[in-house]
Simulated scan of single mutants.
Amino acid sequence: MRLPTRTHPTTDLPGISGTLRTGRQAAAVAARLRPGDVAVIDHVDLDRNAARALVDAGAAAVLNAQPMISGRFPNLGPEELIAAGVPMVDALGTDGLAALTDGRTVRVHDGRVYAEGPDGAVLAAGRALDDETIAAELAAARSGLVTQLESLTRTSTELLRREQDLLLHGQGIPRTATRFAGRSTMVVVGGPELRAELDAVRPYLREQEPVLVAVGRAADELHARGRRPDVVVVDGADEADRPSVAVLKAARDVVVRVDPGRPSGAESLERLGVRPLVFTTSATAEDAALLLVDAGDAALVVGVGLHASLEDFLDRGRGGLASTYLTRLRLGARLVDASAVPRLYSGRVRPVHLLLVMLAGLLALLAAVSVTPVGQEWIDQLADVLGLGGAL
């Protein structure tokens, strides 16, 4: 089966040509990509968020030293690349990765990476992936979900033991200037469906005006839509996911999530004129935002861009599974996914809506009266007063 491909400059040789951009993690490579570049990563079990970042950056092809799907769980990144028409080659190995130097122009064809030129030597070779291969491997990975769930149980128990004061009693959660008590709150995360979900909740956002909590660069998306996040949560270990300085300065609160025993990274924000609050936890930044809102006793929490299904949770990898699971249990029924909002909320009834209903009822009443003898007499009298008797 032929791989789906994007439109690229035509050459006499088959395959796709482009400049290599190399790195360990897909997110870091995506930040350096220009449209038409070939991404080289060392990323086992490519997740959907990382794949979406590569697609949005315009990757012409993705080369991976590791397997795209290891079989541990059904990760969603390869499907994202296939749907966008981005060819993939995986299992290049460490030797193949070492041969692919940043900035070099290469040609990718049939699982091989060639040096530039008609007589270009093979620099690296791996496995070309198509939709049938990916579908078969994902089906096999789904059969191992029981093992992953058992692992989730163990890691959740370990996390709860380490951070029971935080998860059970809210100790260590910073107090923000923003108040959540009794208010509707919207937590916005940079998931693959972020823009579509923001479009879906636009009436709710406009009419209910919830407190806005944005995680990482999702704050930039809100800013682009004319919305100022009240609280911005950033990961101290992931500077690439930080929003713009203007957005950080405009927020009422900036919270930095940091792993226990690690530097907070707050100094870099302070140099920008931002005084952040430090939230020490091994939970992910997304889960830290939810815990922050929960500690503030928000009446309702709408999650935009959050991971909602079992496969979405597993796609994040083992590191964030336990905190995701325990955080969702903590919030319980107060957490509503953005996809459910259009079904549950149809918009607020405004005075103009009531006026239109009353006007329609009045017109219907006048029409009914006009066909009665009394109504006809009234019309004749009105016509005489207006001097229209002869015309009627």
Score class of each variant (00 low, 15 high):
V352Y: 04
V301S: 05
A295Q: 11
D337L: 06
D312L: 06
G317T: 11
H353Y: 07
V301E: 08
A299D: 14
S346K: 07
R350K: 12
D297F: 06
D312S: 09
L306D: 02
L344A: 14
D297M: 08
L306K: 03
R350I: 10
R318D: 15
T327Y: 00
H307V: 07
R318Y: 08
H353Q: 14
T324K: 01
T324E: 07
V341T: 04
E311P: 07
V304S: 01
S339P: 07
S339T: 15
A338F: 05
L306A: 05
R328N: 06
R318W: 06
A308T: 13
H307C: 09
A340I: 10
R330Y: 04
D315F: 05
A322R: 00
G317M: 02
A295K: 10
S339L: 08
A299V: 10
P342M: 03
V301I: 15
L321R: 02
A322Q: 03
V302Q: 03
Y345W: 06
V304Q: 00
A340K: 09
V336P: 01
L321N: 04
D297I: 11
L354V: 13
H353K: 03
G332L: 03
L326P: 00
G347E: 14
P351R: 02
L335V: 09
A308C: 08
L329R: 15
T324F: 10
L310E: 08
S339A: 15
E311L: 14
E311W: 09
V352A: 12
L331S: 06
A299Q: 15
R318M: 11
A299M: 12
A333G: 12
A298K: 02
V336W: 01
R343G: 15
A340M: 13
L300I: 10
S346T: 12
G319W: 04
L314S: 09
G317K: 04
L314W: 08
L310Q: 05
L354K: 11
L314C: 12
V349R: 01
F313W: 10
G296T: 10
Y345G: 04
D297C: 06
L331Q: 03
P351M: 04
V301L: 13
L335K: 01
D297E: 13
D337H: 09
L344G: 14
D315M: 05
P351Y: 02
L321G: 05
G320K: 03
G332M: 03
A308L: 12
L321Y: 04
L306I: 08
H353I: 07
A295D: 13
H307W: 08
A333L: 09
G296F: 05
A322D: 03
Y345R: 02
G332V: 07
L331W: 02
A322L: 04
V352S: 12
D297N: 09
R348I: 14
T327I: 01
F313T: 12
S346N: 06
L321I: 15
R343W: 09
P351E: 07
Y325D: 04
L331G: 06
R316E: 11
D337T: 05
G317C: 03
A322W: 00
V336L: 13
G305V: 06
S339V: 15
F313P: 00
F313K: 05
D315N: 10
L300R: 13
R330P: 07
L354D: 14
T324P: 01
S323W: 02
T324G: 15
G296I: 08
L335N: 04
